[in-house]
């Protein structure tokens, strides 16, 4: 006897739930049709969770008429996988769906992805801090949220944020200080992470950094610089460029009604270096070197 569409789907979903149990979630729409199946897939590492370096969440959207028409596949929250790996996964899952048209395909998809993850169970992404990859021998850390950093890079992040936290605390009166202490967070998703900074600090810098290229001004850069300059000159002529000196003097006049320095006519390009900025500071004599530079850039953020 031929089963109805819904019975075939029902049978497939029951089998999935029996195998994957809590690791699968099925969302029903208002009419009770199971429209979305979701599961997070890890590589097979004989249940050694600490050796799973990659994962991805598979979302299968089931159109009415499945399995006689293809489901829509989405791969969400990939961890440790670069774009080309994800693109290849999309291609092979698509092919699998076509091959299995008319038959249950969800478990096939899960197995296919798991095999792929097991093969590439080394982070193929880049370290978000230094933007370089992970090479054999690099010491790297996987956070509980599945983000990857060279231990060396993560140590730098943690020591910096810890120092900033302490500086902020020291500014506060005793009763306002945090009682919880410093909480390290993941640079990518800001989830709390627990790490031994002292141990991370002993790691060597990533290898790929040593072989990286040096900086060169290319013809592309020159062209772009030229067009920037043209725009600046045009806007300057139209009065569209902020005249820092004039604006600061306005502020000074309002707040202190002190000496009336005429706004200087700086018609040159506003760059380039902080040193040339501070030269103007000394000229103007409004603020000291360091102060002025901070004043220009550090906007109040309240």
């Amino acid at each position: 006897m031929k089963m109805s569409l819904n019975e075939r789907l029902q049978e497939e979903l029951e089998a999935l739930e029996a195998i994957l149990m809590d690791d699968i979630s099925i969302t029903h729409n208002d009419t009770g049709y199971p429209e979305l199946v979701k599961t997070t897939i890890f590589p097979s590492t004989a249940n050694e969770v600490e050796k799973q370096y990659v994962c991805v969440t598979l979302e299968v959207r089931l159109p009415e008429g499945y399995p006689d028409c293809e489901p829509f596949i989405q791969l969400r929250n990939p961890r440790g996988l670069d774009d080309s790996t994800i693109n290849n996964l999309y291609k092979s899952t698509k092919a699998k769906c076509t091959e299995f048209l008319g038959q249950p395909v969800i478990f096939e998809l899960i197995e296919l992805i798991r095999e792929n993850l097991t093969e590439s169970n080394l982070p193929t992404c880049q370290c978000a801090v230094c933007l370089y990859g992970f090479l054999e021998g690099d010491s790297f850390t996987k956070t509980p949220c599945f983000h990857y950093f060279h231990s060396y890079c993560l140590a730098k992040h943690l020591t910096t944020t810890q120092r900033l936290f302490q500086e902020e605390q020291d500014k506060l009166p005793a009763w306002q200080r945090s009682t919880d202490g410093f909480q390290a967070t993941c640079p990518v998703c800001r989830e709390p992470i627990g790490c031994d900074v002292e141990e991370l600090k002993t790691a060597l810098p990533p290898k790929e950094l040593e072989s990286a290229q040096t900086f060169e001004v290319t013809s592309d850069i020159r062209l772009l610089q030229e067009s920037m300059k043209r725009l600046f000159t045009y806007q300057k002529r139209k009065g569209g460029i902020i005249d820092i000196e004039a604006e600061e003097n306005k502020l000074l006049l309002i707040t202190e009604s002190s000496e009336d320095t005429p706004p200087s006519d700086n018609s040159e390009d506003p760059g380039p270096s902080p040193s040339s900025m501070s030269e103007r500071v000394v000229e103007n004599g409004i603020l000291s070197r360091g102060q002025r530079y901070d004043f220009r850039f550090n906007s109040g953020n309240r």
Partner: peptide, 24 residues
Amino acid sequence: MSAPKVRFITKIYHPNIDRLGRIC
């Protein structure tokens, strides 16, 4: 480890950008 410092050079009328081009 610390943020870039950014400022508008072109005048802009925006509640989160001040007359010196500083950005909130």
